[in-house]
Design a binder for these strands. Structure first.
Lengths: 160, 160
DNA sequence: TATTGTTATACTCTATAACTATA
DNA sequence: TATAGTTATAGAGTATAACAATA
């Protein structure tokens, strides 16, 4: 027994100091916790981080190519190759060579993939149940709006 | 040239599908981007991820012990050891054996550490400039409130 | 000449487990 | 017997660079 403590046990009031105004800090704390717990819940699957996201995006965007997928989840294209190898060996997704541009792979989810995705979605929801429960619907909508606004802003901002 | 694309270049509208309602996904995208960019901005320092957070928390909570620090930043206590070794070798923080409980180390920031922290804070602000600029003060306050609410919720929720 | 996807590789990050010293 | 911190280690995760096929 020596795992990373959940925030629950953290309790002791720690002053955030200058981190009070650092968005990245607040976000990372939550992200760390959520992703760690999510991965624990799906240890039975051979899924790596990003696997769920990749599967979900393929499902929602049939024919997606690998480069676009890589950008959407913020990974390197080489990392996506390994991710897809995993999804294919599970029989959850497949690559089809595009005829118009034979360099490209069009990605599709399989029937088994759909089943797996449904289960993973359910687990993701359970994983975030506490977070969802603590927000009203309006608050949740507002949170999404603000996060999307920030994401988009990382955008237009060329590099600076 | 083959680095991970910034969201700016991502543009192509990708449907989020079931990820639409997964907080972790939205958060991760932003976090990935912010942390990657932050680390690029401080390559001159020998700072590892979490180093800035650790220094800031030590500054704001003089005498903090390592276990509490580990919990606050969501790291394992063993990871914190390495983090502190780094901060000490830079001369930015120091460990002092507590007299009441000689097992514990009380952590303190040094004068050089304060200088470094000021610079790092400035860089962090620059790094998030686009994000801050896109939000009104009210929106920013609301975002912090919602994120803190979620973080606290990961709490009370024992384990489920 | 540029782009998609691939391979191979090396490196960074983090947790685990076993240890010590104190309590 | 439990806790704070340490060490050593192994494993996961990710990017980098060089390459093949196609455009």
């Amino acid at each position: 027994m020596d795992k990373v403590a959940t925030p629950a046990e953290a309790a002791p009031e720690v002053d955030l100091g200058v981190l009070n105004d650092v968005i990245g800090f607040r976000i990372r704390r939550i992200q760390n916790h959520l992703s760690r717990q999510f991965l624990e819940r799906i240890t039975d699957t051979q899924l790596r981080p990003g696997g769920f996201s990749a599967l979900a995006l393929i499902a929602a965007n049939p024919g997606l190519d690998q480069t676009t997928l890589a950008r959407a989840i913020g990974f390197d294209k080489a990392t996506v190759v390994a991710l897809l190898d995993g999804l294919e060996s599970l029989g959850w997704a497949e690559r089809r060579r595009q005829t118009e541009d034979r360099r490209r792979h069009a990605l599709f989810i399989t029937a088994e993939g759909e089943t797996a995705l449904a289960r993973l979605s359910r687990i993701a929801q359970e994983n975030e149940a506490a977070a969802h429960a603590t927000l009203t619907e309006a608050e949740q909508a507002e949170l999404y709006r603000l996060l999307d606004k920030i994401y988009a802003a990382c955008f237009s901002e060329p590099e600076l």
